[in-house]
Design a protein around this nucleic acid. Structure first.
Lengths: 176, 176
DNA sequence: TAGATTGTTAATCGATTAACAATC
DNA sequence: TAGATTGTTAATCGATTAACAATC
Protein backbone atom coordinates (compact mmCIF):
# COMPACT_ATOMS: atom_id res chain seq x y z
CA UNK A 1 0.00 0.00 0.00
CA UNK A 2 2.86 2.34 0.85
CA UNK A 3 4.58 1.72 -2.45
CA UNK A 4 1.41 2.42 -4.40
CA UNK A 5 0.98 5.88 -2.99
CA UNK A 6 4.62 6.66 -2.28
CA UNK A 7 4.89 6.50 1.52
CA UNK A 8 6.79 4.17 3.85
CA UNK A 9 5.41 0.96 5.25
CA UNK A 10 5.93 2.41 8.73
CA UNK A 11 3.50 5.21 7.99
CA UNK A 12 0.90 2.82 6.67
CA UNK A 13 1.14 0.82 9.90
CA UNK A 14 1.03 3.95 12.01
CA UNK A 15 -2.03 5.27 10.21
CA UNK A 16 -3.80 1.95 10.65
CA UNK A 17 -2.86 2.04 14.35
CA UNK A 18 -4.93 5.20 14.64
CA UNK A 19 -8.04 3.06 14.23
CA UNK A 20 -7.01 -0.23 15.82
CA UNK A 21 -4.97 -3.37 15.25
CA UNK A 22 -5.86 -5.19 12.09
CA UNK A 23 -3.03 -7.68 11.59
CA UNK A 24 -1.27 -10.49 13.38
CA UNK A 25 2.32 -9.82 14.39
CA UNK A 26 4.66 -12.21 12.63
CA UNK A 27 1.93 -13.27 10.22
CA UNK A 28 0.51 -10.32 8.34
CA UNK A 29 -2.88 -8.91 7.44
CA UNK A 30 -5.86 -10.84 6.23
CA UNK A 31 -6.50 -8.76 3.16
CA UNK A 32 -10.23 -9.15 2.76
CA UNK A 33 -10.86 -8.48 6.46
CA UNK A 34 -8.65 -5.37 6.40
CA UNK A 35 -10.37 -4.14 3.28
CA UNK A 36 -13.81 -4.43 4.82
CA UNK A 37 -12.72 -2.81 8.05
CA UNK A 38 -11.27 0.15 6.16
CA UNK A 39 -14.34 0.57 3.98
CA UNK A 40 -16.41 0.57 7.14
CA UNK A 41 -14.19 3.15 8.87
CA UNK A 42 -14.29 5.38 5.80
CA UNK A 43 -18.07 5.02 5.51
CA UNK A 44 -17.68 3.62 2.03
CA UNK A 45 -19.50 0.37 2.71
CA UNK A 46 -22.88 1.80 1.91
CA UNK A 47 -24.31 3.94 -0.86
CA UNK A 48 -23.71 7.63 -0.26
CA UNK A 49 -26.42 9.83 -1.74
CA UNK A 50 -25.00 12.94 -3.31
CA UNK A 51 -26.91 16.08 -4.23
CA UNK A 52 -25.68 18.37 -6.99
CA UNK A 53 -26.53 22.04 -6.65
CA UNK A 54 -26.47 23.99 -9.91
CA UNK A 55 -27.47 22.30 -13.12
CA UNK A 56 -24.78 23.72 -15.40
CA UNK A 57 -22.56 21.92 -17.83
CA UNK A 58 -20.25 20.77 -15.04
CA UNK A 59 -23.10 18.94 -13.39
CA UNK A 60 -24.01 17.18 -16.54
CA UNK A 61 -20.38 16.07 -16.79
CA UNK A 62 -20.38 14.86 -13.19
CA UNK A 63 -23.65 12.99 -13.58
CA UNK A 64 -22.41 11.19 -16.66
CA UNK A 65 -19.08 10.42 -15.04
CA UNK A 66 -20.83 9.12 -11.94
CA UNK A 67 -23.21 6.93 -13.90
CA UNK A 68 -20.34 5.47 -15.83
CA UNK A 69 -18.27 4.83 -12.73
CA UNK A 70 -21.15 3.19 -10.90
CA UNK A 71 -21.71 0.93 -13.86
CA UNK A 72 -18.11 -0.19 -14.21
CA UNK A 73 -16.74 -0.04 -10.65
CA UNK A 74 -18.75 -1.98 -8.14
CA UNK A 75 -16.65 -0.70 -5.23
CA UNK A 76 -17.66 2.88 -5.91
CA UNK A 77 -20.25 3.90 -3.38
CA UNK A 78 -21.18 7.43 -4.45
CA UNK A 79 -24.46 7.93 -6.18
CA UNK A 80 -25.74 11.23 -7.50
CA UNK A 81 -29.28 11.03 -6.22
CA UNK A 82 -30.57 14.48 -7.12
CA UNK A 83 -29.78 17.64 -9.05
CA UNK A 84 -31.04 21.04 -7.92
CA UNK A 85 -31.28 24.44 -9.56
CA UNK A 86 -33.35 27.54 -9.00
CA UNK A 87 -33.60 28.48 -12.65
CA UNK A 88 -37.21 27.83 -13.60
CA UNK A 89 -36.18 27.11 -17.16
CA UNK A 90 -34.24 24.14 -15.86
CA UNK A 91 -36.34 22.74 -13.05
CA UNK A 92 -38.62 19.99 -14.28
CA UNK A 93 -36.38 19.12 -17.20
CA UNK A 94 -34.39 15.89 -17.12
CA UNK A 95 -30.60 15.66 -16.97
CA UNK A 96 -29.28 12.22 -17.83
CA UNK A 97 -32.30 10.56 -16.26
CA UNK A 98 -32.54 12.85 -13.24
CA UNK A 99 -35.26 15.45 -12.96
CA UNK A 100 -33.87 18.82 -12.00
CA UNK A 101 -35.47 19.89 -8.73
CA UNK A 102 -36.06 23.41 -7.40
CA UNK A 103 -33.34 24.26 -4.89
CA UNK A 104 -35.87 26.21 -2.85
CA UNK A 105 -37.33 22.84 -1.79
CA UNK A 106 -33.97 21.29 -0.95
CA UNK A 107 -34.69 20.59 2.75
CA UNK A 108 -37.82 18.69 1.84
CA UNK A 109 -36.07 16.52 -0.78
CA UNK A 110 -33.13 15.95 1.53
CA UNK A 111 -35.39 14.15 3.99
CA UNK A 112 -37.41 12.38 1.35
CA UNK A 113 -34.43 11.11 -0.62
CA UNK A 114 -32.01 10.67 2.29
CA UNK A 115 -29.36 12.92 0.77
CA UNK A 116 -26.01 12.64 2.57
CA UNK A 117 -23.77 15.30 1.10
CA UNK A 118 -23.89 18.11 -1.42
CA UNK A 119 -21.72 19.31 -4.29
CA UNK A 120 -21.82 23.02 -5.09
CA UNK A 121 -21.27 23.90 -8.74
CA UNK A 122 -23.03 27.23 -8.91
CA UNK A 123 -21.14 30.41 -9.87
CA UNK A 124 -18.76 31.75 -7.21
CA UNK A 125 -21.00 34.65 -6.39
CA UNK A 126 -23.92 32.39 -5.45
CA UNK A 127 -21.89 29.75 -3.61
CA UNK A 128 -21.99 31.20 -0.08
CA UNK A 129 -25.72 31.68 -0.24
CA UNK A 130 -26.19 28.09 -1.37
CA UNK A 131 -23.84 26.84 1.36
CA UNK A 132 -25.80 28.71 4.03
CA UNK A 133 -28.98 27.10 2.86
CA UNK A 134 -27.44 23.63 2.74
CA UNK A 135 -26.17 24.00 6.29
CA UNK A 136 -29.58 25.22 7.39
CA UNK A 137 -31.14 22.13 5.85
CA UNK A 138 -28.84 19.89 7.87
CA UNK A 139 -26.09 19.10 5.37
CA UNK A 140 -22.75 18.66 7.20
CA UNK A 141 -20.43 17.74 4.31
CA UNK A 142 -20.01 20.00 1.30
CA UNK A 143 -17.87 19.54 -1.76
CA UNK A 144 -17.36 22.99 -3.22
CA UNK A 145 -16.34 23.39 -6.86
CA UNK A 146 -16.84 27.16 -6.89
CA UNK A 147 -13.65 29.22 -6.63
CA UNK A 148 -14.41 30.81 -3.24
CA UNK A 149 -13.59 30.07 0.37
CA UNK A 150 -16.87 29.29 2.08
CA UNK A 151 -17.63 30.38 5.64
CA UNK A 152 -19.42 27.63 7.54
CA UNK A 153 -19.93 26.59 11.17
CA UNK A 154 -17.17 24.40 12.65
CA UNK A 155 -19.30 21.23 12.55
CA UNK A 156 -19.54 21.46 8.76
CA UNK A 157 -16.76 19.97 6.67
CA UNK A 158 -16.05 21.71 3.37
CA UNK A 159 -13.65 20.53 0.70
CA UNK A 160 -12.99 23.03 -2.03
CA UNK A 161 -11.58 21.94 -5.38
CA UNK A 162 -10.69 25.05 -7.31
CA UNK A 163 -9.65 23.62 -10.64
CA UNK A 164 -8.52 26.89 -12.15
CA UNK A 165 -6.38 27.63 -9.09
CA UNK A 166 -4.69 24.25 -9.36
CA UNK A 167 -4.16 24.91 -13.04
CA UNK A 168 -2.56 28.26 -12.24
CA UNK A 169 -0.21 26.53 -9.81
CA UNK A 170 1.12 24.49 -12.71
CA UNK A 171 1.99 27.67 -14.59
CA UNK A 172 4.72 28.31 -12.04
CA UNK A 173 6.69 25.42 -13.47
CA UNK A 174 6.58 26.75 -17.02
CA UNK A 175 9.81 27.96 -18.45
CA UNK A 176 9.53 31.78 -18.20
CA UNK B 1 -2.79 37.90 3.00
CA UNK B 2 -2.24 35.51 5.88
CA UNK B 3 -5.68 36.13 7.31
CA UNK B 4 -7.32 35.50 3.97
CA UNK B 5 -5.93 32.02 3.62
CA UNK B 6 -5.55 31.20 7.31
CA UNK B 7 -1.81 31.31 7.91
CA UNK B 8 0.36 33.60 10.05
CA UNK B 9 1.91 36.81 8.82
CA UNK B 10 5.30 35.31 9.65
CA UNK B 11 4.77 32.55 7.13
CA UNK B 12 3.71 35.00 4.46
CA UNK B 13 6.93 36.94 5.02
CA UNK B 14 9.00 33.78 5.05
CA UNK B 15 7.48 32.53 1.83
CA UNK B 16 8.10 35.86 0.16
CA UNK B 17 11.71 35.72 1.42
CA UNK B 18 12.14 32.58 -0.67
CA UNK B 19 12.05 34.78 -3.76
CA UNK B 20 13.57 38.03 -2.54
CA UNK B 21 12.86 41.13 -0.54
CA UNK B 22 9.80 43.01 -1.65
CA UNK B 23 9.08 45.45 1.15
CA UNK B 24 10.73 48.24 3.10
CA UNK B 25 11.39 47.53 6.76
CA UNK B 26 9.42 49.86 8.97
CA UNK B 27 7.30 51.02 6.05
CA UNK B 28 5.52 48.09 4.43
CA UNK B 29 4.95 46.74 0.93
CA UNK B 30 4.04 48.72 -2.11
CA UNK B 31 1.02 46.66 -3.05
CA UNK B 32 0.98 47.13 -6.81
CA UNK B 33 4.71 46.44 -7.09
CA UNK B 34 4.42 43.31 -4.94
CA UNK B 35 1.45 42.14 -6.97
CA UNK B 36 3.31 42.46 -10.26
CA UNK B 37 6.41 40.78 -8.89
CA UNK B 38 4.37 37.83 -7.66
CA UNK B 39 2.47 37.49 -10.93
CA UNK B 40 5.81 37.48 -12.71
CA UNK B 41 7.29 34.85 -10.38
CA UNK B 42 4.23 32.66 -10.81
CA UNK B 43 4.28 33.08 -14.60
CA UNK B 44 0.79 34.53 -14.48
CA UNK B 45 1.69 37.79 -16.19
CA UNK B 46 1.15 36.42 -19.65
CA UNK B 47 -1.50 34.36 -21.36
CA UNK B 48 -0.99 30.65 -20.76
CA UNK B 49 -2.26 28.52 -23.61
CA UNK B 50 -3.98 25.41 -22.39
CA UNK B 51 -4.78 22.32 -24.43
CA UNK B 52 -7.67 20.05 -23.47
CA UNK B 53 -7.31 16.38 -24.35
CA UNK B 54 -10.57 14.48 -24.63
CA UNK B 55 -13.68 16.23 -25.88
CA UNK B 56 -16.20 14.82 -23.42
CA UNK B 57 -18.78 16.63 -21.38
CA UNK B 58 -16.20 17.70 -18.81
CA UNK B 59 -14.28 19.54 -21.52
CA UNK B 60 -17.30 21.38 -22.62
CA UNK B 61 -17.86 22.44 -19.01
CA UNK B 62 -14.25 23.57 -18.70
CA UNK B 63 -14.33 25.49 -21.96
CA UNK B 64 -17.47 27.35 -20.95
CA UNK B 65 -16.13 28.02 -17.48
CA UNK B 66 -12.88 29.30 -18.96
CA UNK B 67 -14.62 31.57 -21.44
CA UNK B 68 -16.77 32.99 -18.71
CA UNK B 69 -13.86 33.55 -16.39
CA UNK B 70 -11.76 35.21 -19.06
CA UNK B 71 -14.63 37.51 -19.84
CA UNK B 72 -15.29 38.59 -16.27
CA UNK B 73 -11.89 38.36 -14.60
CA UNK B 74 -9.17 40.29 -16.34
CA UNK B 75 -6.49 38.95 -14.03
CA UNK B 76 -7.10 35.39 -15.14
CA UNK B 77 -4.36 34.38 -17.52
CA UNK B 78 -5.38 30.91 -18.60
CA UNK B 79 -6.82 30.44 -22.03
CA UNK B 80 -8.08 27.20 -23.47
CA UNK B 81 -6.49 27.42 -26.88
CA UNK B 82 -7.32 24.02 -28.32
CA UNK B 83 -9.34 20.86 -27.74
CA UNK B 84 -8.17 17.48 -28.94
CA UNK B 85 -9.80 14.10 -29.39
CA UNK B 86 -9.13 11.01 -31.43
CA UNK B 87 -12.76 10.15 -32.03
CA UNK B 88 -13.39 10.86 -35.70
CA UNK B 89 -17.01 11.63 -34.97
CA UNK B 90 -15.84 14.54 -32.87
CA UNK B 91 -12.84 15.93 -34.71
CA UNK B 92 -13.80 18.71 -37.04
CA UNK B 93 -16.90 19.60 -35.03
CA UNK B 94 -16.95 22.79 -33.02
CA UNK B 95 -17.14 22.97 -29.20
CA UNK B 96 -18.06 26.41 -27.92
CA UNK B 97 -16.21 28.08 -30.74
CA UNK B 98 -13.21 25.77 -30.78
CA UNK B 99 -12.72 23.19 -33.51
CA UNK B 100 -11.94 19.77 -32.08
CA UNK B 101 -8.57 18.68 -33.42
CA UNK B 102 -7.23 15.15 -33.93
CA UNK B 103 -4.98 14.23 -31.01
CA UNK B 104 -2.76 12.28 -33.38
CA UNK B 105 -1.53 15.65 -34.70
CA UNK B 106 -0.95 17.14 -31.25
CA UNK B 107 2.79 17.79 -31.63
CA UNK B 108 2.19 19.75 -34.81
CA UNK B 109 -0.52 21.94 -33.27
CA UNK B 110 1.51 22.42 -30.12
CA UNK B 111 4.19 24.22 -32.12
CA UNK B 112 1.76 26.06 -34.35
CA UNK B 113 -0.45 27.32 -31.52
CA UNK B 114 2.25 27.68 -28.87
CA UNK B 115 0.47 25.42 -26.38
CA UNK B 116 1.95 25.63 -22.88
CA UNK B 117 0.27 22.97 -20.80
CA UNK B 118 -2.27 20.20 -21.20
CA UNK B 119 -5.34 19.03 -19.31
CA UNK B 120 -6.18 15.33 -19.53
CA UNK B 121 -9.89 14.50 -19.32
CA UNK B 122 -9.92 11.18 -21.15
CA UNK B 123 -11.11 7.98 -19.39
CA UNK B 124 -8.70 6.58 -16.78
CA UNK B 125 -7.71 3.69 -19.00
CA UNK B 126 -6.48 5.98 -21.77
CA UNK B 127 -4.79 8.58 -19.57
CA UNK B 128 -1.29 7.07 -19.35
CA UNK B 129 -1.13 6.63 -23.11
CA UNK B 130 -2.16 10.25 -23.62
CA UNK B 131 0.36 11.42 -21.02
CA UNK B 132 3.18 9.55 -22.75
CA UNK B 133 2.29 11.22 -26.02
CA UNK B 134 2.10 14.67 -24.44
CA UNK B 135 5.52 14.23 -22.85
CA UNK B 136 6.89 13.01 -26.17
CA UNK B 137 5.55 16.16 -27.81
CA UNK B 138 7.39 18.34 -25.32
CA UNK B 139 4.67 19.13 -22.78
CA UNK B 140 6.18 19.51 -19.32
CA UNK B 141 3.13 20.43 -17.25
CA UNK B 142 0.06 18.22 -17.13
CA UNK B 143 -3.17 18.70 -15.25
CA UNK B 144 -4.72 15.26 -14.91
CA UNK B 145 -8.43 14.91 -14.22
CA UNK B 146 -8.47 11.15 -14.79
CA UNK B 147 -8.52 9.03 -11.63
CA UNK B 148 -5.10 7.40 -12.10
CA UNK B 149 -1.57 8.07 -10.94
CA UNK B 150 0.43 8.89 -14.05
CA UNK B 151 4.02 7.74 -14.51
CA UNK B 152 6.11 10.50 -16.10
CA UNK B 153 9.79 11.48 -16.26
CA UNK B 154 11.05 13.62 -13.36
CA UNK B 155 11.18 16.80 -15.43
CA UNK B 156 7.43 16.64 -16.03
CA UNK B 157 5.11 18.12 -13.42
CA UNK B 158 1.75 16.43 -13.02
CA UNK B 159 -1.11 17.61 -10.84
CA UNK B 160 -3.92 15.13 -10.46
CA UNK B 161 -7.35 16.25 -9.34
CA UNK B 162 -9.40 13.15 -8.67
CA UNK B 163 -12.78 14.62 -7.88
CA UNK B 164 -14.43 11.35 -6.96
CA UNK B 165 -11.58 10.55 -4.57
CA UNK B 166 -11.97 13.90 -2.84
CA UNK B 167 -15.69 13.29 -2.64
CA UNK B 168 -15.07 9.91 -1.03
CA UNK B 169 -12.83 11.58 1.55
CA UNK B 170 -15.81 13.64 2.66
CA UNK B 171 -17.80 10.47 3.30
CA UNK B 172 -15.50 9.74 6.24
CA UNK B 173 -17.06 12.63 8.14
CA UNK B 174 -20.62 11.38 7.68
CA UNK B 175 -22.36 10.12 10.77
CA UNK B 176 -22.19 6.32 10.45
C1' DT C 1 13.51 59.94 18.59
C1' DA C 2 9.27 57.01 18.84
C1' DG C 3 6.54 54.00 16.36
C1' DA C 4 5.94 50.69 13.01
C1' DT C 5 6.84 46.87 9.87
C1' DT C 6 9.93 43.90 7.36
C1' DG C 7 13.27 40.05 7.15
C1' DT C 8 15.43 36.49 9.97
C1' DT C 9 16.55 33.64 13.83
C1' DA C 10 15.67 30.27 17.13
C1' DA C 11 12.12 27.58 19.18
C1' DT C 12 8.16 24.84 18.56
C1' DC C 13 5.27 21.68 16.59
C1' DG C 14 3.70 17.81 13.98
C1' DA C 15 4.52 14.45 10.49
C1' DT C 16 7.46 10.85 8.99
C1' DT C 17 10.74 7.22 9.47
C1' DA C 18 14.32 3.95 11.22
C1' DA C 19 14.77 0.76 14.48
C1' DC C 20 13.12 -2.56 17.48
C1' DA C 21 10.29 -5.12 20.75
C1' DA C 22 6.33 -8.06 20.65
C1' DT C 23 4.31 -11.73 18.65
C1' DC C 24 3.10 -15.61 15.82
C1' DT D 1 13.54 -22.51 17.55
C1' DA D 2 14.30 -19.58 13.38
C1' DG D 3 12.17 -16.47 10.45
C1' DA D 4 8.98 -13.10 9.56
C1' DT D 5 5.85 -9.22 10.15
C1' DT D 6 3.09 -6.22 13.04
C1' DG D 7 2.65 -2.40 16.35
C1' DT D 8 5.31 1.11 18.81
C1' DT D 9 9.12 3.89 20.31
C1' DA D 10 12.52 7.24 19.76
C1' DA D 11 14.92 9.95 16.42
C1' DT D 12 14.70 12.72 12.43
C1' DC D 13 13.05 15.94 9.41
C1' DG D 14 10.63 19.85 7.67
C1' DA D 15 7.11 23.23 8.24
C1' DT D 16 5.38 26.83 11.09
C1' DT D 17 5.60 30.42 14.43
C1' DA D 18 7.05 33.60 18.22
C1' DA D 19 10.28 36.73 19.01
C1' DC D 20 13.44 40.07 17.68
C1' DA D 21 16.96 42.66 15.22
C1' DA D 22 17.23 45.64 11.33
C1' DT D 23 15.45 49.38 9.21
C1' DC D 24 12.76 53.25 7.81
Amino acid sequence: MGERIGISSALVRKDLAWFGEFGKQGVGYEVEYLRKELLSILNLNREIKVALIGAGSLDSALVRYNQNRNRTDSTFSMKIAAVFDNDENKTGTVLAGLEILPFSSFAEYKTKLGLDLAVITVPAIKAQEVADRLVQSGIRQIFNLAPVKLAVPPEVKVTTADLSLELECLAYYLKP
